[in-house]
Amino acid sequence: MKKMMLVGTTTAGKTTLVQALMGEELRYQKTQAMTYNKQFLDTPGEFIENRRFYSALMSSSVDYDAIAVLHDCSKRQNLIPPGFATMFNKEVIGIMTKVDSEKANREFSRKMLTAAKVSRIFEISSYTGEGMDELKAWLES
């Protein structure tokens, strides 16, 4: 199974996604520091929101097979720089989160993740399970 580092803004759903993938109870938990487990590295949202942390993201990515850039499609805001994925020497995927939200704008999220230069995009809801099977299959491939 692929080891993956998750990167995204504060409240993008990184921790919730890890909880869902690990079969844990979904509960909000603000990630204050990098959180490691056997398969995932959950990074604080501030690491993508502040360029001074980019070197920490690059050096931490070394031990992972892939990087996931998450975008909350319920927000019409983007803090992911164009071309962001190109700074990693790994496969970088995009994960559009909260697709079950009334405010979901998949087109906007897709545009932002495409501009970041991710290799492919998964559309998921950690709560309803939408898109999770496809993501899990990719992780197991």
Results as ranks from 00 to 15, higher is better:
Gly83Asp: 05
Asn105Lys: 10
Ala104Phe: 06
Asp65Phe: 04
Asn78Cys: 12
Phe40Thr: 10
Thr128Gly: 12
Glu91Trp: 01
Val99Lys: 12
Lys98Tyr: 03
Ile95Tyr: 02
Met58Ala: 14
Thr15Tyr: 12
Cys73Leu: 10
Leu57Arg: 09
Gly13Met: 11
Tyr28Ser: 08
Glu107Asp: 09
Tyr36Ser: 00
Lys3Asp: 00
Ala66Pro: 05
Ile121Trp: 00
Met96Gln: 14
Gln19Phe: 06
Glu140Asn: 13
His71Thr: 03
Ser119Thr: 10
Val7Asp: 09
Lys90His: 15
Gly129Arg: 07
Ala85Arg: 11
Ala104Pro: 05
Leu21Ile: 06
Asp133Trp: 01
Asn37Pro: 05
Asn37Gly: 04
Val18Gln: 08
Leu139Pro: 01
Arg120Glu: 02
Ser55Ala: 12
Thr97Leu: 06
Ser125Ala: 11
Gly129Trp: 02
Lys117Met: 00
Lys2Leu: 14
Met112Glu: 09
Glu91Thr: 14
Ile48Gln: 03
Thr10Asn: 07
Ser55Gly: 10
Ala68Cys: 13
Ser126Trp: 11
Lys98Leu: 02
Phe122Val: 06
Met1Trp: 06
Thr43Ala: 03
Phe53His: 10
Ser61Val: 10
Phe47Ile: 05
Ala12Asp: 13
Thr11Asp: 11
Ala137Met: 07
Arg76Val: 11
Arg110Gln: 04
Thr11Glu: 11
His71Lys: 03
Leu79Lys: 15
Ser125Thr: 14
Asn105Gln: 03
Gly13Thr: 03
Asp42Glu: 15
Met132Ser: 06
Gln32Tyr: 03
Ile121Glu: 00
Leu113Tyr: 00
Met4Ser: 08
Lys136Phe: 04
Glu91Asn: 14
Ile80Lys: 15
Lys2Ser: 15
Arg120Pro: 03
Pro44Trp: 07
Glu134Lys: 15
Ala116Tyr: 00
Ala115Tyr: 01
Arg110Leu: 00
Ile124Gly: 07
Ser141Leu: 01
Ser119Glu: 08
Tyr28Val: 14
Glu140Val: 07
Thr9Asp: 14
Thr16Ser: 15
Lys2Trp: 11
Ile80Glu: 02
Pro82Trp: 07
Val18Phe: 04
Asn50Thr: 12
Lys75Pro: 10
